[in-house]
Amino acid sequence: MATLLYLLALPILIYLHFKPKYHDSIPARFFLKNNARFTEKGIWFHACSFGEVRSLSPFIEKIEPSSVRISVITQTGFREASKYPLAQVRYLPFEIFLPFWIRKQKVLIVMEAELWPLLFIVAKAKGMKTVLLNARISDNSYASYVRFAWLYRWIFNSIDLIFAQSLEDEQRLKTLGAKAVHVCGNIKAFSRYEVSHVYPKQPNKRVVVLASTHEGEEELILSHLTLLPNDQLIVVPRHPERFAKVNRLLSAYAENLGKSYMCLSKQNSLEADVILCDTMGELINLYAIADVVFLGGSFVDGVGGHNPLEPAFFGTKLISGEFIFNQKVLFDSVTNVFTCKAEDIKNVFDSIETYPKSAIVHHGDIEPLLEQILGK
C-alpha cells in the first residue's frame, strides 16, 4: 500500500520540490538525496519540526555529542537540529525506505504524535529500545484515533516505553493498547530559555508582540487593537511561507496609522513603530524585551495554541485566545495568562497595565526521566 501511494504521489512530490518550503526535505525524504544512514550505536531522537527539536535540548545537552542522532520532517526542524555540535542530522525517509535505511541505535526516542508504523516496527526488529516521549492525544483527534484503534494497537506493540503529558493522555493511550505508560508532564517544562541576541529597548516604549500568529490572526487581533502612541508593535508569524503576505498587511497597516515600518531581515534593529520579524529563531529574543504578548495559534480554531512557557519565563503580560486545547498541560504550568475571545481583545488590552505579569509555576527535573529512557 505504501509503495502504491508513493508511486501515485510522485508527480505531486516533484511539483512540491520546487516550492521553497520543501526544496530540501522532499528530495531527502522521498528520493534519499544527501540523506545517508546514521552510523550505529547512537541515541536517536525523532522530531517533526522546529519547536519539537528545540524542546529536546535539555535531553540532548546531557548526552555525549557524538552519540546524538536526530531525524526530522521539516526544513525548519533540520536547521534547528543542525545547531547541535557533532550531532548527525537527517530527514526521516518515507516509510518504504525505512527497512534498509535504519541502522541499529541504542534507543529510539520519538516525540509526541509521530507514530509512523514502520519507524517503530523496524527499529524494534533491529533490537532498539523504543520510546514515545511527550505523548498526547488532543480532544479534537481522539475520535480519529479510536476509529483506527486496530492500527495503533499494532504500532504500540513495538513501543517499549511511553511518557504521556497528562493523566487524560495516559488513559486514552491505554485505551488504544499502549503499555508501560508513565505521566511526566510536558517536557517543555524542562527547558531553560536563553537569548541569542540582546535587542536594546527604546526608551519609553511599550513593546507589544504578536507571537506565532497563523492565517487570519494578524487581521483579527489588529482589528480589535488600539495602540498607544508609545507602543511598538512586533509581529512574528509562525510559518516563514507567510512572511510576504504579512509584510503587505503590516506595511498597509503602518501607513494607514502614519507609523514607521520595517522588516527585521532588512535591518537587525528595532527602530520602527511597526516591525515584521521575518527571520527564524528570534522569538525568544523578542520575548526578553516584550511588555505585552499575544500568543497566536489560539484566536482561530484548529491550531490549539502554542507554548506559553517562553513568554512567561520573561514575565510578560500574556494574552491568549480561547483555543488552547493542544497546550492545556503547559497553560496549567503558567500563572496570569489572560485568555479571551476575539471580541474581548480590546477590553483586555486596554486594561492590561492593571493585570499582573505571567510566571512559570515550576520547572521539571529531567534527570530521573532521562535515566528511565536510557535505562541507566
Rank of each mutant, 00 (worst) to 15 (best):
G216H: 04
I155L: 09
F349V: 03
Y193T: 01
S251D: 12
H46W: 05
I73R: 05
E219A: 15
H363I: 07
E114T: 04
I137E: 00
L222Q: 10
E343M: 00
H182V: 06
D301Q: 14
F38H: 08
R79N: 14
L161N: 04
F299Y: 08
S166C: 03
L4Q: 07
T175M: 08
V198R: 11
P368T: 10
W150P: 14
A81F: 07
L86M: 13
C263W: 01
V209L: 14
I43S: 03
F338C: 01
Y355P: 01
K357E: 09
K205M: 05
F243C: 01
P65M: 08
R238G: 00
I275V: 13
L233M: 03
I319D: 00
I60L: 15
G302N: 07
N204P: 03
T76C: 04
L132K: 03
I109K: 14
F156E: 10
S25Y: 00
N35V: 07
I63T: 08
P311Y: 02
N326H: 11
E40G: 07
P229D: 12
K41C: 09
T76G: 07
A36D: 12
P203G: 00
P308R: 07
I373K: 04
Y145D: 04
Y145E: 04
V208N: 09
L276K: 07
L369F: 08
A189P: 02
S358L: 11
P58C: 06
I12C: 12
I234E: 06
L222Y: 04
V337P: 03
I96W: 12
V293S: 05
V207N: 10
L133I: 12
L151H: 03
E353W: 05
V337N: 01
E40M: 09
D278R: 02
H239D: 08
F148R: 11
F156Q: 02
L167M: 09
R147K: 13
N140I: 11
F294C: 03
F323K: 08
T3C: 03
W154V: 08
T279L: 11
A342I: 09
E367W: 01
K205R: 15
F94N: 01
R153P: 05
A9D: 07
L98H: 08
R206G: 06
T316W: 00
F349W: 00
E310H: 04
Y152S: 11
Y355S: 05
N204A: 13
T354P: 02
L210W: 01
K124S: 11
V195P: 02
H17T: 14
D231Q: 00
E217L: 10
S351W: 00
N285L: 03
P85G: 10
W116G: 11
K259L: 15
